[in-house]
């Protein structure tokens, strides 16, 4: 078991190194940051001085090594645009994105599983048909359109929820949270639904399909034949067996919730890292872009590692103590 974890962690590190390399080498082609940073009134000496100061005169492997060295210590350099340490800027913005992602992820998982199980059990009811048809909308509409629709209905027409921003935030040890104020919670509702709707419908359809498959299995029939109640059969025996594929997809989706928060953050003017990244691209702010990409890949790799460990927790067949006798 420990062996397995060590191997997975090792693989994760290799993945991160490769992602870093790819991201880092791509930035060499997005343009020369020096052009953007210095105004029209620059001299060749200014350019050379800044280039040396930023370490851009070094060969590529040296730059990459220095980047890794600093990154491991949590130092992602100084933003070309803002002139402040990148780590500081990201730490300022990350709570907004992480809170948004957590809420919409939770929304997607809970509602998705509940609706998926419901539509699988009541396969022929009218409610299931309504939900299944409605879920098509969630899959087919683009995120920004859903966001705009929600803003129109709930902010403009009904005036129930704010249309942009995080509301009031409370600062706890450098982490600014919107969970503790009424306006902060209200501000989370629309962006969280917008961001999580697609994942929710996806999880729902997946759970439903898996559940229908599992309900046909012999062990479900045998559980019924032993007189176990429908509730135990559906939620204990069947649901647990649907979880392995559901976790796979959910894990990947959670990663993309964080990565693709950019669009939602733009629509709702959410002060998260997604907005930061958009701005960084416009100004060729390489340290910010690099740090953002590393952050996202750490999240993806971390979630995947977690998913693999969850498999083992759920399915005893993967624990490799298979002495069939």
């Amino acid at each position: 078991m420990l062996n397995y974890v060590i191997r997975r962690v090792f693989q994760s590190v290799v993945v991160l190194l490769i992602v870093g390399l790819v991201a880092f080498s791509m930035f060499r082609f997005v343009g020369d940051p020096i052009d953007n940073m210095l105004g029209q009134e620059r001299t060749q000496a200014d350019i050379e001085r800044l280039r040396t100061q930023l370490g851009l005169d070094q060969p590529f492997p040296v730059q990459y090594w220095r980047f890794l060295e600093n990154a491991v210590q949590g130092n992602f350099g100084v933003s070309y645009r803002q002139g402040r340490p990148v780590a500081e800027i990201i730490a300022e913005r990350a709570p907004a994105t992480l809170e948004l992602a957590a809420v919409s992820g939770l929304f997607a998982i809970v509602i998705g599983i509940v609706l998926g199980v419901f539509t699988a059990i009541r396969r022929e009811g009218w409610a299931s048909n309504v939900i299944m048809t409605g879920s098509l909308i969630g899959v087919s509409l683009p995120t920004f359109l859903i966001g705009i629709l929600l803003i129109y209905v709930f902010s403009v027409e009904l005036d129930l929820l704010p249309s942009f921003g995080r509301g009031d935030v409370v600062d706890i040890g450098g982490w600014s949270t919107g969970f503790l104020t009424a306006s902060g919670l209200k501000a989370l509702v629309l962006p969280a639904i917008t961001l999580g709707l697609y994942q929710m419908t996806l999880i729902m359809r997946l759970v439903r399909a898996e559940m229908l498959e599992v309900l046909r299995q012999d062990y479900i029939n045998f559980a019924r034949a032993r007189g176990l109640s429908e509730r135990v059969v559906n939620f204990r025996h069947a649901l647990k067996n649907t979880l392995v594929p559901v976790i796979t997809v959910t894990g990947l989706q959670l990663g993309s919730i964080i990565a693709f928060a950019i669009i939602t953050e733009t629509v709702f003017q959410w002060p998260g890292v997604g907005l930061l990244f958009i701005n960084a691209i416009q100004f060729v702010d390489i340290p910010v872009m690099a740090a953002y990409l590393m952050l996202i890949s750490v999240m993806f790799v971390g979630i995947n590692l977690l998913v693999d460990l969850l498999y083992v927790a759920i399915d005893p067949r993967l624990r490799g103590e298979g002495n069939t006798t």
């Binding site: 012999d218 034949a225 032993r226 007189g227 025996h237 647990k240 067996n241 399915d315």
Partner: peptide
């Protein structure tokens, strides 16, 4: 009644037990 007064044994022992419990 099921399980208490009448019980059933299925054909395939490989699939009639829930693998996760």
């Amino acid at each position: 009644l099921r399980g208490s007064e009448i019980s059933m044994i299925f054909q395939d022992p490989l699939t009639s037990l829930n693998p996760l419990f």
